[in-house]
Amino acid sequence: MVVSDLIEKFGLTAYSGKDGLDRQVTGGYASDLLSDVMGHAREGQVWITLQTHKNVMAIASLKDLAAVILVKGHGPDDDAAQQSNEEGVPVLGTTREAFEMVGELYEAFKEHEIL
């Protein structure tokens, strides 16, 4: 499963980082605490968060995450979108709340035997 499959399956908005839509997805991590993600997220995961600032992209890129999914209709800040484009790590969005998004992703990942 790659990032663009998630966009299609869940009707996500692709805000930025479109060069990275073919990145392989190996799981997910949900947290709004940046040090928690820094310490515990793993390469290839999608990160579900409501944080929209540029540091999110620094972490996503340093950790080689597959993509960031912003919840509750949020979009990335301008400098975050710019860094997402530069690094080719997509920022996606949904109007769902984090709980729903994570639940649906978890089901799908189980089904595709990613988890």
Binding site: L34, S35, M38, V56
Partner: peptide, 15 residues
């Protein structure tokens, strides 16, 4: 509010 300051930074460094 930016998601920093959770008190995990130094232990992330140590670990």
């Amino acid at each position: 509010e930016m998601g920093f300051g959770a008190g995990m930074g130094l232990s992330n460094i140590k670990n």
